[in-house]
Amino acid sequence: MPHLSSESLTRAREIVDLYPQRRSALIPLCHLAQEQDGWLRPEAIEEIAGLLDVTPAEVLGTASFYEMFKLEPAGRYVISVCTNVACMLAGAYDLLAHAEERLGVRAGGTTPDGRFTIEDVECVAHCDHAPCVQVNSRYFGPLDAGGFDRLVDSLERGELEGDVPPHGTLVRVRRTKGLMA
């Protein structure tokens, strides 16, 4: 039984076809696998290697370089708290401390119920909304402690399903138009 679903496989082949060389599809395919599973599973790495004619070690060697690929299960919502300069000057470290307290895990950790992961990240280019966070790469800010709590409440109640897809889903727009060939 292949690990990637037939839908994922179809999309994977479409992506590979976009590039002059197969290996260029490596990062997009890792995103695709993460969209299916929420993290990058070893079984997915094996199959991506097969699709690209490289070894699993080459896929892992590349994927492990990049922050966005999770090699262990991550929460349904990955909350990335920016602590870089603009956000720091606006109280980001207090916000991070509050986030850790509210969710009961330290940065880098995932809540036992698998719902939330908190990260301490570099600038996410939303500095005019400092201090800000991303949830699954979607922007929220500026946030104080109360704003953070309301955000978590909304996520818990499922009110933001439309804005924030589960972790791993990056681009909800599919490439519909083929290449010239």
């Binding site: 599809a25 990049y66 966005m68």
Partner: peptide, 29 residues
């Protein structure tokens, strides 16, 4: 002209143009 939109995956160094090209070739940046 064909255009492909290619996502990064979280690494500042891929902004350096040759790191970017490596990343676009499916490698570490």
């Amino acid at each position: 002209l064909d255009v492909v939109v290619h996502p990064g995956a979280g690494a500042y160094i891929c902004g350096e143009e040759t790191g970017l090209l490596e990343s676009l070739e499916g490698k570490r940046g």
